[in-house]
Design a protein around this nucleic acid. Sequence first.
DNA 1: TATTGTTATACTCTATAACTATA
DNA 2: TATAGTTATAGAGTATAACAATA
Lengths: 160, 160
Amino acid sequence: MKRPPSPHRPRALAPIARVAGLDYDVLDRLLGYALRRAQVGVFLAFHAATRGQDITPPRFTALVIVGANPGIGQSALGQVLGIARSGAMMLTDWMEARGLVERRRRPNDGRSWGVHLTPRGEKLLAAMKHSVVAQDRRRAAVLSAAERRELLRLLEKLAG
Amino acid sequence: MKRPPSPHRPRALAPIARVAGLDYDVLDRLLGYALRRAQVGVFLAFHAATRGQDITPPRFTALVIVGANPGIGQSALGQVLGIARSGAMMLTDWMEARGLVERRRRPNDGRSWGVHLTPRGEKLLAAMKHSVVAQDRRRAAVLSAAERRELLRLLEKLAG
DNA sequence: TATTGTTATACTCTATAACTATA
DNA sequence: TATAGTTATAGAGTATAACAATA
């Protein structure tokens, strides 16, 4: 009993609702669940800030890193993102296909490519940085400046 | 040029390394990236604590919620996890197939099922809770008790 | 031998949408 | 009409493994 293929739509992304009257038991005392909930909220805000642009957090991260470290190799890029080399390659392909970066042979090492932003990539990144930072600030507005700093510090400590 | 199909192995899961000598630019000032890094660390620790058991954070969450709210429906379960109904169903299938929960018809509403832990599920959950909580405490040991409480508070506030 | 980038492939998670039974 | 659960399908993300070129 075949179903017709579904037309693809961009992902909707459900927020994690705190269901009233439910007992969350030990979850409320675990850092893991708290982190997950906070992350989903921030992720949703990220999407709102970059609506229309075909961007995701890993793609944004990759562009920022390439922008700040011109000529970085794809393996190092993968490490920053916590993904395998093959994934870093696909990310680089994606950026290159949109004319945001270009690969340049490294003179000293014929195996590796350096990834560099194009002028177009520079421009897009500047605009994206602006809106993402503004959104992050807006999102964090429920916290005082001191609380925000403290949160960043504690997260950094926890990440190790 | 066909390749032989790869035998499947359990996922390795790369940590997010902080690459020395790299400029992280604006990422160091964004809550989103800090959350991501912290979450990956906690996720890795979770896996270490549940090694051998075929458990993941969503599966653990589902078991805890069912345990604390016997007879909960699958839609509510999906809301807690931030996933669609179909996903909650597959999670329930997974738990049921392992004899951890059972579905029981609700008397008042013939549409919905209540999900309940089996004795086997109770026992496994108790053991899992113990090791996951212990691991969370261990992971959080880089923080003082006050810092840990403060982090939970700030994350909760941020999650909204 | 080891590393960088690459390609092929497989798997997990989760979404959308249509469907059934019940309300 | 609306909701709970279900089934079928699609797609994103990312892993592993084998490969070629270079070190």
